[in-house]
Design a protein around this nucleic acid. Structure first.
Lengths: 227, 227
DNA sequence: ACAGAGTTTCAAGACGCCTTCAAGAACGCG
DNA sequence: CGCGTTCTTGAAGGCGTCTTGAAACTCTGT
């Protein structure tokens, strides 16, 4: 049950997007939207969604090309892609699969059906990072329950941002992650790098010394959880 | 959850039945077959399958009527039904849902797709079934008997929505569930996210402090039962 | 020792989110 | 059909969180 997956929906028709977005959110997904290929691919690279829903006909190009771009990406090439096409698009089906789509749906799309395939594809690609609980020694950070525990005891009143930040650091440990990387993954709105510092500071203040000592700064590079 | 599910397939064309049967069996299902409505309904009543796959066009009547018969059954009315129709049956889709079908597939049916839906529908009803009684420490919420107890004592006058809400939170504990997720599971009609807040408030007011303290809010995320 | 870049701390303002209250609408029961 | 309960919606209020800015501090290389 690794929830809180992120899905990127590239679709120019807001009338199509809205119900699908609602369905995804109701199922616990986080939804990113883009109305064109340019924006879509940019979102894809920066937010690294777990799944992409791609319309074939877009204002600035075809979804097929976008799909190929995704497949050509160095590290994110195996992200599942679901293509959406207009009526009678069956002929394009072969073309869609050729471009590397994992599945093809013909409009009008039933939200439930899309959800079903999304779940199936995500299950197939494996329950990798991003969701459940991560642990590091006596520390565990559960993003689903939104609780962090140390030696089994829940840590007091961490805010959402603080917990997500801690989760991310522990998840990537012992790697050093840059402020910009953190921002792109955990922040929806754009903000200055400095906000990360403040949250790091608040975190360290709330955590027991044994844990806060492990949140380390690497000058010029970023932060890491070491331990 | 590891038990074998039984699926009843009502379909007169053996050429259609065979591959679907093979797929179901390969997936671990037990398969019953019927080539007409009369036989089908009889099998349904006696064998009580967990799922029914129903062709719309049968020698002795239409699958729509059969579906209505199933829905009219006293104890088995909530058995999931998947309808199969010939090409161009899109117009019948509405009719099919109206008859009470949970889903509609157009032939030719992809075995994998059918399997996907079967799994989904069974999971759904499985969750509802698991909705007997849940407990968390001294608290028990019985959705079947529609009563909640704390330290053995029945809690006073909880409304249906309040009890279902409490049940859901306890069921998912300690995970945080979003308002949208709650709405999609407990509400048939669409409503604003805010209704959840009101019911949460009413719930907390009626519950003893020990319990209401455990119904916690996570800003921007949703609610959880913690404890 | 000094200068500079980068980090940490502190405090205050802005914003979003949750909670509460109240009233209208829908529902079920008699 | 009418009444009471339950559900839904709206608006106001308050609290907590997030963000930002400035200043103090540390470290490093000169």
């Amino acid at each position: 049950m690794g929830e809180q997956k992120t899905v990127l929906m590239v679709e120019d028709d807001a009338g199509v997007r809205a119900p699908l977005r609602a369905a995804f959110e109701a199922a616990g997904y986080r939804v990113l939207e883009a109305d064109g290929i340019a924006v879509g691919l940019n979102e894809f690279r920066t937010k690294e969604p777990d799944l992409v829903v791609l319309d074939v006909e877009l204002p600035d190009g075809t979804g097929l090309d976008a799909c190929r771009s995704i497949r050509a990406h160095k590290t994110l090439s195996k992200t599942p892609v679901i293509m959406l096409t207009g009526r009678g698009g069956l002929e394009q089906k072969g073309e869609g699969f050729e471009a590397g789509a994992d599945h093809y749906l013909v409009k009008p799309v039933h939200p439930k059906e899309l959800l079903l395939w999304a779940g199936s594809l995500l299950r197939r690609t494996g329950e990798d990072a991003g969701a459940g609980a991560v642990t590091a020694g006596e520390l565990s950070v559960d993003r689903e329950a939104m609780v962090a525990r140390f030696k089994g005891e829940p840590l007091p009143k961490l805010t959402v941002k603080e917990l997500e930040l801690l989760h991310f650091l522990v998840l990537k440990r012992p790697a050093v992650v840059s402020r910009k990387h953190i921002l792109s993954k955990l922040w929806r709105t754009v903000a200055v790098d400095h906000v990360v510092d403040t949250h790091i500071a608040n975190l360290r203040k709330k955590l027991p010394a044994e844990v806060s000592d492990r949140i380390q700064n690497v000058p010029g590079k970023g932060f890491r959880y070491f331990g």
